[in-house]
Simulated scan of single mutants.
Amino acid sequence: MRYIIIGAGAIGGTIGGRLYESGHQVVLVARGSQYQALHEQGLALTTPDLGTRVLPVPVAQGPQGVELAPEDVLVLAVKTQDTEAALVAWADRPVAGGGTAGERLPLVIAQNGVENERLALRRFARVYGMCVLLPASYLAAGSITAPCTPYTGMLTLGHYPPRAEADGTLRAIGEDLVKAGFLAPLAPDVMYWKYGKLVTNLVTTVEALCGTGGDPAAQRVAREAVAEADRVLDAAGIARADAAEMADMRTGKVEKPPVSGAATGGSSWQSLARGTGSIEADHLNGEMVLLGRLHGVPVPVNEALQRLANASARERRAPGSLTGEELAAAVGLV
């Protein structure tokens, strides 16, 4: 199989780079300065086991730069706010031998949140979910750091919609990921894990707004955002992995070593650090807002976090621009 990684940021770049150096065919799809750096210099990937190396992974600017074949696997790794545009761009691309990508090719959703699978199923017949536990940073074009050990990440895979038995394609993808240094368990209901991950992702918005220093007031905001999520998910009847299950997935398997100096935050923190102008809050905290409105459960902290995160991205504020006390006041926890 050849892996077409749509979105070569921290997650897509790490998955694609690891697959490439383990002997698999890979094409990274990037844009702007990231495409330019990958095209001219290759992918500088840093991991604890091998240090930094530059990988000459093939790169394309978009679907027009890739001639699709029946054995290709598409891996969607863009931020959720860019999902719809990516699906439109790729679904109708022709595949050698007849048909389109949407009709014939498997699409793996390697993204945060729970909306992407539903969006994809409108245009792709073969959709697979992936719960990504893969701390990685992408702050400079062409350079990605994946600091965890002994495994680079935990990539739980499953059919969407759920299916009790994994098909041959899903099993083959899992085997390839294991050879590339990941844990890749197959789950009968991958969304159980993705909803669990969604709850943990709510905290990344607080981190983006207040920084990674562990301010007590910011931690209080994070706890209340998670408490709101638990109430609304219970009201919606949505089963998900709890905090202990999510922690158990990582412990002893996907561990970040201690770092000296300023810590790099998660994906939302990195979006602000790079000044991208957008952030995933509409599909993280905003998912809780949506469910809260559907089921009559107030979620004022998540509403405020969504609003503040979008304003910070739009105005290109640096991560950590608010103190914990300022954030607590802004979300009504005073």
Rank of each mutant, 00 (worst) to 15 (best):
S278G: 01
Q270Y: 00
A262Y: 09
V259P: 02
A281S: 15
G266K: 10
R293Y: 06
N285Q: 10
L284R: 05
I279W: 01
R293I: 04
S268P: 14
T264V: 15
K256W: 04
A273Q: 15
N285D: 03
W269D: 00
E287A: 12
L291T: 02
P257M: 02
G266S: 15
V297A: 10
W269Y: 10
P257N: 03
H295P: 07
V254H: 06
E255F: 00
Q270R: 03
S267Q: 05
P258C: 01
K256F: 01
L272C: 08
S278N: 12
D282E: 14
V254I: 12
R293D: 12
P257R: 06
S268A: 13
L272Y: 06
P300Y: 10
D282T: 09
G265A: 09
D282W: 02
S268R: 03
I279C: 07
K256Y: 02
I279S: 02
P258G: 00
V259T: 09
G286R: 04
K256G: 00
P258V: 01
G261R: 11
M288D: 02
P298F: 11
G265Q: 13
A273R: 15
L272A: 04
P298S: 04
S271D: 15
L291D: 05
L272W: 08
V289M: 07
T276K: 05
V259E: 14
K256N: 06
S267T: 06
R293S: 11
V301P: 13
T264S: 11
L294N: 09
E287Y: 07
E280I: 05
E280A: 03
A273I: 12
V297Q: 14
S268G: 06
E255I: 11
A262V: 13
V259G: 00
R274N: 07
H283T: 12
G296S: 11
G277H: 03
L291N: 00
L290P: 00
V299A: 14
V299Y: 14
S278T: 13
L291S: 03
V289P: 10
V299D: 08
V299P: 12
P258E: 02
T264M: 11
A273D: 11
V254D: 04
Q270D: 04
L284V: 00
G266V: 10
V301D: 10
T264R: 15
D282C: 03
H283Y: 15
V297C: 10
